[in-house]
């Protein structure tokens, strides 16, 4: 049940590469992918990023494919609407539902394919970041930006507590399941509400304890993090530039 991408990032060999290089690769892919007008460019980005994640990042391919399937439900539901209501051009196919005539034309089909490919491209860039960079390393980047300290502090504390509460929640859920707490809709509703309220009360108490513990250790509103320097290697720079050049060539074409 606990399937956080962050867990995979922690064991990925790409974790020890320069974070700015990774961030720029991802930002480049995201922006080029979302502004591309042909489906080829996002698909190329998806392929390259997927290859980098699975081959260099050693993410299990099965897990990666399962991840890619997750957004597809949303993408397909949205694309169906686009297919039938968007664009003009020659009719591709049509059928009747409850007396309504639904027609898909060339423009709509093109747009639907484009949107799905953009989603694939964007998701694969995001997965590359999520599966290669633990959040801890992103905090040092965030600290350098102009985002106020209070927000970063809050995100770091949230990050820490996610793992604690997730463990508690999973334990409770197992305990409830073996006691047949999730048989039938009505009982599941009661079970999940009980789980959530227990979790809330525990987290509140935990929050109070944390405040006391940090205050007694001279907490002044700032946790300091040290970041390590990781120079960009020549091979990485070359590979990245080749990828960028091909992508731009596909984009301009």
């Amino acid at each position: 049940m606990r399937n956080l991408l962050d867990d995979y990032a922690l064991i990925s060999p790409l974790r020890y590469r320069n974070i700015w290089l990774k961030l720029s690769v991802v930002a480049f892919g995201l922006i080029i992918g979302v502004s591309s007008v042909s489906p080829v460019t996002p698909l190329f980005i998806a392929l390259s990023m997927g290859f980098a994640t699975v081959f260099f990042g050693k993410t299990p391919p099965k897990f990666y494919l399962a991840l890619l399937l997750a957004p597809l439900g949303f993408a397909i539901a949205g694309s169906i609407v686009i297919l039938f209501f968007f664009g003009s051009g020659s009719e591709v196919f049509s059928f009747e539902v409850f007396g309504y005539r639904l027609t898909a034309n060339a423009g709509g089909l093109e747009m639907a394919v484009l949107v799905i490919s953009r989603t694939l491209g964007g998701m694969s860039c995001m997965f590359f970041l999520a599966l290669s960079t633990p959040m801890i390393e992103l905090f040092s980047v965030l600290k350098r930006s102009r985002i106020p300290d209070s927000v970063i502090e809050l995100s770091m504390l949230i990050y820490r507590y996610i793992f604690l509460f997730l463990d508690v929640a999973i334990c409770i859920k197992y305990a409830q399941t073996v006691r047949l707490g999730y048989t039938g809709l009505r009982r599941s509703l009661y079970s999940i509400a009980m789980l959530a309220s227990t979790l809330f009360i525990r987290s509140y108490e935990q929050g109070e304890k944390l405040y006391i513990a940090m205050n007694s250790r001279c907490y002044d509103g700032k946790l300091t993090l040290l970041d390590t320097k990781r120079p960009i290697r020549v091979s990485e720079a070359v590979l990245t530039s080749v990828y960028a050049i091909i992508t731009i060539a596909l984009f301009v074409r």
Binding site: L154, L166, A169, F200, S203, G207
Partner: peptide, 24 residues
């Protein structure tokens, strides 16, 4: 009131964990 920060943090984590659990 600096004591509010840990409380907000656990609230944020709580929202996240709720969303990580699948609703029936």
């Amino acid at each position: 009131n600096r004591g509010i920060l840990p409380l907000l943090a656990v609230a944020g984590a709580f929202i996240f964990v709720l969303s990580a659990l699948k609703l029936p």
